[in-house]
Design a protein around this nucleic acid. Sequence first.
RNA 1: GGUCCGUUCGUCUAGCUGGCCCAGGACGCUAGGUUUUCAUCCUAGAAAUCAGGGGUUCGAAUCCCCUACGGACUACCA
Length: 508
Amino acid sequence: MERKVRVRFAPSPTGPLHIGGVRTALYNYLFAKQLGGTMILRIEDTDQGRFVPGAEEYIIDSLTWLGIKFDEGVHVGGPYGPYRQSDRKPLYRQYADQLIANGWAYYAFDTPESLDEIRKSFEAEKKAFQYDVTTRLSLRNSLTLSQEEVNQLLAENHPYVIRFKMPEDEDIIVNDHIRGRVVVHSKLLDDKVLFKSDGMPTYHLANIVDDHLMEISHVIRGEEWLPSAPLHVMLYKAFGWEATMPEFAHLPLLLKPDGNGKLSKRDGDRLGFPVFPTQWQDPKTGEISSGYRESGYFPEAVINILAFLGWNPGTTQEMFTMEELIKAFSIERISKSGAKFDLEKAKWFNQQYLRQHNGEELAKLFMPVLIEKGINITSDKLAVICDLVKERISFVKELWEQTYFFFNAPESYDEQVVKKRWKEDTAAHLDSISAILEAVEPFETTIAHDKVIAYIQENTLNMGQIMNCLRLVIVGAGIGPDLFTIISLIGKEEAIKRIKKGINEIKI
RNA sequence: GGUCCGUUCGUCUAGCUGGCCCAGGACGCUAGGUUUUCAUCCUAGAAAUCAGGGGUUCGAAUCCCCUACGGACUACCA
């Protein structure tokens, strides 16, 4: 039976979304769009204690920036709402009750403190405590208490949780699209809390209920969920929803670039690359974490980079637009092992995307920087300049260091170049060249160029020697595009001024 | 500790139905070339005894087993 593809991205609003989460969202999106399915954003905020203001808005904004769009969700609505679990709160209780009625769950009155104590005493004996089939009959719950006691405790409003009663002897099979068939025996699993004493469901209950109610067809999520997948499968069985249970795909983790381990929020700024799509300021501490957007990455590049972290098309094509990714994507081609983020490759991707922008577009992005610096220039002229230097940079923010000399005379001169090129007679030759430029009237760059070349040849000078020194006084360093193109853009007067300035300031 | 997942060049990876693989591509790196400089670009090169060990087979990176290592999970967090 073919069923409608409906996938969800279900973050919890506990802070900014990191790139591992973004990749999960992306893969869900690619999968859904390829199959003409529906992409849903559901906010999993069942933990009131970890709620961070602004996080939900952040998630929506950053995914919007990246071009990951939702068909249903907190921000766009839809027929399966509400899409925020805290808004669905009244809904969950009945499902927990249903499980209790069917013998799949029970009340547990143990306090967190008493459980902690038991845990400690187990540890003292080098054993790990688990609330499971081996221990539940020695704890305070509706399995060990009489019906009357339970009723009384409930009537007296004693705090309690509802736990899942994991079967004693059953092989639980999780069919995963990436890992294959994973079998876990039920006796190894614990009686997870489904319903908390604060009246909220835990992730486990809420996610099964919501996925079922929202008719989710495929659950594509991070590998960190794989250990709890057997519990989820059991829950579907307990509810009698096996027939419509979603298919699973557990994505490999994104690892720290150095060493091993899951990429964490702290790694980014420590290693010099963003872990977040856009900048985030912690509302409590005020601490700022950098984002791809602010670091100068194009959203298309970030998508491309992320798509390739754990997936490949099986061809040698590396540059993919979102449309192309939607066509090419397949869960079967997702790798099993974790991937480390490679900063150099990320830069390369951005460079490729930067080149796809013409001068006009780059000028638009660069203009605000110049305005900030108090530089006046027409966008037409800036477009020409951007076109001239775009092959030399990977990020828009590098534009300044490749173009400053179009706007300002050099403040200093690259010592390496001075040392290598500046000779005793350099000043004299540059003085002559200055005079040659002066004499070209009206000023035509090609004529000026030819005359300078002629001067070099007539005096049997070293071409590189003279040209590099001329560049040094004009630019201040051994960088930049064709020198005479630069001169034509800054103009004759400015060029001559810079030559004289250089002659004055450069001493050997 | 227990459970589960993973392991091919520095990194991302191709390889999945065994022979075309003494392992291919990309980034990075090195060298040479182009260029008046830098960058780009072009060419070449180094770089994985396919984690290790056992099988199965005429033949294994590819199938099976064991070991090692790494990771995730192990909360009234998601």
